[in-house]
């Protein structure tokens, strides 16, 4: 009898645990959430860009908008203008432009519809803004793969996935990842995370040396270039 009682208690405890897991899972699946396969990307001498996977779950009825926005930096926008037969550069300075911008949506939303959401338009001016200036910036960023506009892969109604490439010319710094959940064209939930891009390895050390100790940078370069030049001359010189 004692053994049977122990077995009953054991089975009950397993059942409660199972119920608790189900409840937790339901709570998770009911609230939209997202993650990235990596939150830290290091730019080193082998860096050729990095594929990042964005995944998560959402309510079946709601739509999701993701915005990846790199740190604001000053920039120069060059426009090629044809003068006579030649293409001449016209350059102007821009302040506080995001160094990377990506927008991913569930298939329900077109980019033009996103533009109608005033909260997003004000917070992220690059979104589908028809002004000439922003169009030019978007085009310039797109040509360097620094601006991405794509749809999320909707797996089964509430799971979504997106693979995208962080290009090799990305500037180091924080990329803020915003998730907006919408129902009936109203934002019902906002959350954000950070994707950190940092320089590491020899690339980082060289850049730091160049910026902080220019004299040592040149000195090392001169010494190494002289040695290499002498060495190759010695190896390959004619007898």
């Amino acid at each position: 009898m004692i053994y049977l009682e122990h077995l009953r208690i054991y089975l009950l405890s397993i059942m409660y645990k199972f119920l608790l897991i189900i409840l937790l899972f339901c709570k998770i699946t009911l609230a939209s959430n997202f993650s990235l396969d990596e939150f830290d990307i290091e730019i080193n001498s082998n860096f050729l860009g990095k594929e990042v996977v964005l995944f998560g779950n959402k309510d079946k009825e709601s739509s999701i908008i993701f915005i990846f926005e790199g740190e604001d930096k000053d920039a120069k926008l060059t426009t090629k203008v044809k003068e006579g037969y030649l293409w001449i550069n016209k350059t102007r300075s821009l302040n506080n432009q995001p160094s990377f911008f990506a927008i991913f949506t569930t298939p329900k939303i077109t980019l033009n519809e996103i533009f109608l959401l005033s909260t997003l338009k004000e917070k992220h001016p690059l979104i589908s803004n028809p002004s000439v200036r922003l169009y030019e910036i978007r085009k310039a960023m797109k040509s360097k793969n620094l601006f991405i506009e794509e749809e999320l892969e909707n797996l089964n109604g509430n799971l979504f996935l997106k693979k995208f490439l962080i290009p090799d010319n990305i500037s180091p710094g924080n990329i803020k990842v915003y998730m907006y959940e919408l129902k009936n064209n109203q934002i019902i939930k906002t959350s954000s995370k950070n994707l950190v891009i940092k320089k590491g390895g020899i690339s980082f050390k060289l850049e730091e040396l160049l910026k902080k100790e220019s004299f040592i940078y040149v000195f090392i370069l001169i010494v190494i270039s002289l040695l290499l030049s002498l060495l190759t001359n010695l190896i390959f010189r004619r007898k």
Partner: peptide, 15 residues
């Protein structure tokens, strides 16, 4: 390179 139509009419360079 000076005469051909450029692939990208707009170029952005971060400072």
């Amino acid at each position: 390179d000076l005469f051909r139509t450029p692939e990208n009419l707009f170029i952005i360079n971060y400072v």
